[in-house]
Write a protein that binds this DNA or RNA. Sequence first.
DNA 1: CCGTATCCGCGGTGATACTG
DNA 2: CAGTATCACCGCGGATACGG
Lengths: 126, 126
Amino acid sequence: MFKKQQLTKTECSQSMQAIKDALQVLSGKWKLPIILALSDGPLRFKELQRAVNNITPKILSKELKELELNEFVERTVHATSPVTVEYNLTPYSGTLEKLIAELQSWGLQHRQYIFSKSKMRKAVEA
Amino acid sequence: MFKKQQLTKTECSQSMQAIKDALQVLSGKWKLPIILALSDGPLRFKELQRAVNNITPKILSKELKELELNEFVERTVHATSPVTVEYNLTPYSGTLEKLIAELQSWGLQHRQYIFSKSKMRKAVEA
DNA sequence: CCGTATCCGCGGTGATACTG
DNA sequence: CAGTATCACCGCGGATACGG
């Protein structure tokens, strides 16, 4: 269905691994909202907290670390007193654009598809 | 960064919803492996269990129900004795192809990107 | 202000046993 | 064979409080 040519076990598991990598990067409640919040410009920790539905600092911290590891977000410390920390998107985060667009358009059409199906069913029942 | 034009709150949350829909459909340990297993042809319940790393029947059942709801998988009962049940992919599941391809290629390039970064860091440390 | 530490409840997953 | 029921566990995520 998806691949007409036969794949070796190794090729297949590599492909699965790549897909899992990609999903892991975006899945979870918070990563996309954080990225979106930062897409309008850099924010400080507390500002991010407020921007993203009052996420708990523990979780925000964890999410930001993951986003840093994946090089989507850059953390810069300003030696003011008290210290302030700014988070901003890296240029590399732009590589997500196509993927996100694809997710968005598929999700949209899928919602409409499922919706129209359930309407049909209701019409038949009536 | 991602959208140059300003979006209204409603448009934005609709877009987020679509993305979440798409992610939910594919996220989790099992959905992709199941779809992949079925992509070579229909399988029965027990065969699927074996094909997908000995997934527990409870979980497999739950996952299959979700995949049915989303119309990726079709369930057909054969009135043999004892009954046998076949699961197979629907044509609609083909709409995932582009999305999966995108996930796969992005995941691959990302892994290479992160890997090359960590090599660079090691080289600098040495 | 920027986080970390501690505690805790809940959901999801797995093991096992069981019914039709 | 196909699927469900029961139980137990673990880890995520939230609330709250605290340290640098």
